[in-house]
């Protein structure tokens, strides 16, 4: 399976797709460089296939904690100003973004 790393979908169009999902615009040089490096890394990941783990359950939480909850008690909000002033752009009480078209 050595070739698995060579035919990874991280050719320029594959990397473009992934970058689109991640919302990072890449230059052509970046696509080439990162694509090659990631293909390399993914090739290294192939070793996981041989690990004796087929019968093991997936482990997503390392501690056996469960039912961690808080009571339904509202706090009094601290006001919007201290948050709005963090925004790169704002308009009145809103965080400002370019116009979003949702209408038909």
């Amino acid at each position: 399976m050595k070739d698995a790393s060579k035919n990874q979908p991280l050719d320029p169009s594959g990397i473009e797709h992934v970058a689109g999902l991640a919302r990072i615009r890449l230059t052509r040089e970046e696509k080439e460089k990162l694509g090659a490096q990631l293909s390399d890394i993914l090739g290294y990941m192939e070793k996981l296939k041989s690990a004796p783990a087929d019968d093991l359950e997936q482990l997503s939480h390392i501690l056996p904690l469960k039912n961690v909850t808080r009571p339904d008690e509202p706090s009094s909000p601290a006001g919007s100003e201290q948050y709005l002033r963090l925004a790169p752009e704002r308009e009145g009480g809103f965080f400002k973004v370019p116009p979003v078209i949702e209408e038909t």
Partner: peptide, 16 residues
């Protein structure tokens, strides 16, 4: 623990 409510000023019921 932000309160749930309806209406009001924008971004008035928010926290980190």
């Amino acid at each position: 623990d932000c309160p749930v409510d309806w209406g009001g000023e924008p971004n008035s019921r928010v926290c980190p």
